[in-house]
């Protein structure tokens, strides 16, 4: 078969987009409602672990979680990295840290941004506290970021 050269091969953009909805269900629904009220809810499993953010089912056993309980809005950084030049989609417009943060009363850590100003202020084991949005929408971004809590 004769093959056209590359300049003869047509191509066109193909944007595939639809509008979807999501039903959050009873567990994540309460978690997001809690964020709107400035509270963080975790899921307590049958084995007594507290998952934050909550899951509907214990990832270890597959059992339904037993209860939603309130955990602290402050916590401890378990590991972190630094972003010198934030992309447009980043949660903060100035340099910040991404950290895994275990909130007080939780057994798991969640990923969020820490507005520490400089990497010198970041450390594993540091204490941070959630900064809530002035106009919450019922999303994880209702926590704008975490602020370092200086040891007193």
């Amino acid at each position: 078969m004769a093959t056209p050269d590359d300049s003869e091969v047509l191509k066109a953009p193909y944007a595939l987009q639809y509008t979807y909805t999501r039903s959050t269900g009873p567990v994540l629904g309460h978690f997001f409602a809690g964020l709107m009220a400035g509270r963080v809810l975790g899921a307590r499993t049958a084995t007594g672990r507290v998952l934050v953010p909550p899951a509907e089912y214990d990832p270890d056993t597959g059992e339904a979680v037993e209860a939603l309980i309130e955990v602290g809005t402050a916590g401890t950084v378990t590991t972190w990295t630094w972003v010198d030049a934030p992309a447009e989609s980043a949660p903060l417009s100035r340099a910040f840290g991404w950290a895994l943060i275990r909130l007080d009363g939780a057994d798991t850590a969640m990923l969020h941004a820490v507005d520490a100003g400089s990497p010198e202020r970041m450390a594993t084991g540091m204490r941070v506290r959630a900064r809530f949005a002035a106009e919450p929408r019922g999303a994880i971004t209702d926590i704008v970021c975490f602020d370092p809590v200086e040891a007193s």
Binding site: S23, T24, A64
Partner: peptide, 12 residues
């Protein structure tokens, strides 16, 4: 509309 459940809740 099964708004009472998430997709995981539905299959469960």
């Amino acid at each position: 509309r099964r708004k009472d459940v998430s997709i995981p809740g539905l299959v469960r």
